[in-house]
Design a protein around this nucleic acid. Sequence first.
DNA 1: CTAGGGTTAG
Length: 568
Amino acid sequence: MHSQTHLESLISFIKSTTQTTQLLQIHAYLLRTSLIQDTTFSVPFLRRISLQNLNYSLHTFSQISRPNAIHYNTMIRAYAMSNHPERGFYVYRDMMRQGIRPNPHSSSFVTKSCIRASLLFGGLQIHARIMRDGHHSDTLLLTALMEFYSGRGKCDDACKVFDEMPQLDTVAWNVLVSCYTRNGRTRDALGVFDTMRSGEHGCDPDDVTCLLVLQACSNMCAFEFGERVHQYIKDHGYIHALNLCNSLVAMYSKCGQMDKAYEVFQEIRNKDVVSWTAMISGFANNGHGREAINVFREMVRMGVSPDEQTFTALLSGCSHSGLLDEGRLIFNCMQREFHVVPNIHHYGCVVDLMGRVGLVEDAYELIMSMKCKPDATIWRTLLGACKVHGNLTLGEQVIEHLIELKAQEAGDYILLLNIYSSAGNWERVIETRKLMKEKGIQTTPSASTIELKGEIHEFKVDDTSHSRVNEVYEMLDEIEKQLKIGGYHAEITDNRLSYHSEKLAMAFGVLATPPGTKLRVAKDLRICTDCHNFAKKLSGVYNREVIIRDRIRFHHFREGRCSCNDFW
DNA sequence: CTAGGGTTAG
């Protein structure tokens, strides 16, 4: 027989080895000696092998004549993390059929299965079981369940689980924040940060909370809130965490505060590729293409290797600032000098760059020459260029490509409509409208937000839901009257004046802040030409700086000009 | 009976 010390060393060997070949030898040995039937051996072995090879763990599992809860749990976990997460759920069901009671660990693993396999009903069943088995006080388990609801877009259900948890910890709060951010309830995410800070619940925000909240600030351009988070990070000794610093650079950039972003950036001691890229992308998105290129040069000088995303940021900077030659130069050298193979995003930037200066045919050729398959975004970029340069024939060709990809959206047709109407081709306008109706393509209203004393105000097109709606419309009319003097005429589409959300947000800003205050507006879609003109004139006539962040980039309006120089 | 939850920065 085996000696006691021999068996003990076998177990510690199983736990420590990382070599698959050794594990396989042990596997054979356990089977030969029937030690596999002894849970003292089978449990650590199964656990170990399940992290390396699913087939072997399955084989081992099948050799165990009376698997216990831990064996089952190990298998559920292995499947939950595999390419077939749904099988974890099947094992869980099998376990119950065998009359083995799931413990909180089983539920935890199987919840992961349901999350990864998008099993809605599975998750609901598990929720019911958790309650029935009396595991409704297990914080870790309920946090996993929240994550499940959060991932399925069921924010309210996640909140309900949260509210009913008897014991909360920081992780649970963080999941709540990430749930809000992921499901578009950015404002509530910021609210949670304040609630946590109030100290009423005994859970202070940690570094993860800060990371999540900074993301939320970036999303909605909440600069003042972001500053407070920055202060919190300083006060709590997180300021040397590289991920937080990089997020701060991104947050300030996304709020259009380049001086602040640069300040944080400069103080980072061990700048990595992410830090450099964040800075480049910040300058790029704010229309400072030259600065973006300078930061890139500095990065190379410091010996940090740029990667795919660095070039995406850099090339997009070139396209936002209309730097055709520089962009082409970078595109041409990225593979040769930096060994980064151009991907679809890089091509997209160059297509955009060529499209802007009117080289639409060349851009089309470039797309057709790509090794990777063109996606909807790149065609859309070219379609935008066709609109700017009134190229009707190519525009129609591009729409064909989009239709072929089954990816055409309302915005694409609107662009096409604009091309037709600029060309005075009313027949085609009517045809296209009819086509849109047939295809059931609906235009979704976009929204703009503006932050005021830390509070976020949201407006939609022709919005009437704001508490000061009458004042806002009066103010907008008043502004338009003033701007008319400055040579601005509102564009009339579809025979009527429309009150775009960004105009309403700007009007509200003028209304609710003292003269000269900077206005910072975030919009979820792209700003249109008319609103762009409106903002330009407003910045001059009212002597206000206006920053509008749209889906793609920033526009800084000042003294009647925009930082983008009309390079969209 | 060892096992389980949140971040994935640009």
